Amino acid sequence: MASVLVTGGAGYLGSHTCVELLSAGHDVVVFDNLSNSCEEALNRVQELTHKSLTFVQGDIRYQDEIDQVFSDHHIDVVIHFAGLKAINESLETPLTYFDHNVVGGTQLLKSMEKAKVFTLIFSSSATIYEAIGDIPLHEDVPVLSKNNYSYTKLITEQMLQQIAKADSRWSIALLRYFNPVGAHKSGRIGEDPQGVPNNLMPYITQVAVGRRKKLSIYGHDYDTIDGTGVRDYIHVVDLANAHLCALNNRLGAKGCRAWNIGTGRGSSVLQVKNSFEEVTGIPIAFELSSRRAGDVATSCADNSRAVTELGWQPQYTLEDMLADSWNWQKQNPNGYN
């Protein structure tokens, strides 16, 4: 078993991954500044697993704070979730995104090198793909920065690839997520964005629970089945388990390798809305709005490399994702607050 540092571990993806890590017998140290997360999520992670973790509040942009974590705790592997992730916001505040996602990532790498910890699983994104031509997207299709968020993911990937080339001690996994949704079956942890949600699923569930009047659908004139954007939605627990598979793959391995984490099945925004209504029986009021800058028509994964090389296989259907998202929201109408 490994001792794992999870940056951003109190967030949506991080908290679900902590559940799977603890359940698998790993020791977990969470480092999070709580800027878009809540310590209550970690309390519930421990409640669900009947195991304890260590929480350190801090910011990856401040190297002395990260150095202290490595000084105080034995760490074998780092899973790096910490960062900002809203496309629209990244276009409005590019320097903030470069500071958190690129500078923060660099500070983390410096601390890892100093502590002689060379195994890293990086939270990347399918938004780095050019998304022109073949769908589904495989790991070798062209990459292109379409917005500042994807740029920070792309430049960090390229930085990690160069580091691994220069120093053979590094073993790095680049996990390119498609669209994580859903929640833990218990409904105790789930997605709790601050302010207006940037992602589809929490927007739908907040309409369903009465926190918002209607769903805004951005773009209805794409070249898709119904004009709305098509995405590859993956259950957050499947995504969390991909990190365990990547951890097992990277321990003892060398170099840097990328894997898509998606189901290989695309659903449009309207299909998701309609399926949610069928699963829950709750009508979702909506309005059609103009496209958002930086969005693409279709994004869907070729996940065959992850299936073959990591031994990973997504288990949950779209209906599971919708049911679990609603179970979380109805139990926690105001999130963790």
Results as ranks from 00 to 15, higher is better:
A306R: 01
A306H: 09
A306T: 07
A306Q: 06
A306E: 08
A306D: 06
A306F: 04
A306C: 08
A306G: 08
V307W: 00
V307G: 00
V307L: 03
T308W: 03
T308G: 00
T308Y: 01
T308C: 04
E309C: 00
E309H: 00
E309M: 03
E309V: 01
E309T: 02
E309W: 00
L310S: 02
L310A: 05
L310E: 00
L310H: 01
G311R: 03
G311S: 05
G311Y: 04
W312K: 04
W312N: 03
W312P: 02
Q313K: 15
P314S: 11
P314A: 09
P314N: 09
P314T: 10
Q315D: 12
Q315R: 15
Q315E: 15
Y316Q: 13
Y316L: 15
Y316E: 12
T317V: 09
T317N: 09
T317L: 12
L318V: 06
L318S: 11
L318R: 07
E319T: 02
E319V: 03
E319K: 03
E319L: 04
D320N: 15
D320M: 13
D320Q: 13
D320I: 12
D320E: 10
M321T: 13
M321W: 06
M321P: 11
L322S: 07
L322F: 11
L322Y: 06
L322D: 07
L322R: 08
L322V: 08
A323Y: 05
A323K: 07
A323C: 08
A323P: 04
D324N: 14
D324C: 11
D324T: 15
S325V: 09
S325K: 09
S325C: 10
W326I: 06
W326S: 04
W326E: 04
W326N: 05
W326M: 08
W326D: 05
W326C: 06
N327S: 09
N327V: 11
N327A: 13
W328I: 02
W328K: 02
Q329G: 02
Q329A: 15
Q329F: 09
Q329V: 02
Q329I: 06
K330C: 12
K330Y: 10
K330F: 09
K330Q: 11
Q331H: 12
Q331D: 10
Q331K: 13
Q331C: 08
Q331I: 07
Q331P: 03
N332Y: 15
N332Q: 15
N332W: 11
N332K: 12
N332D: 14
N332F: 14
N332L: 13
P333D: 01
P333C: 02
P333Y: 05
P333W: 05
N334P: 11
N334G: 13
N334I: 14
N334A: 13
G335C: 06
G335K: 04
G335M: 06
G335S: 03
G335I: 08
Y336F: 07
Y336W: 04
Y336P: 07
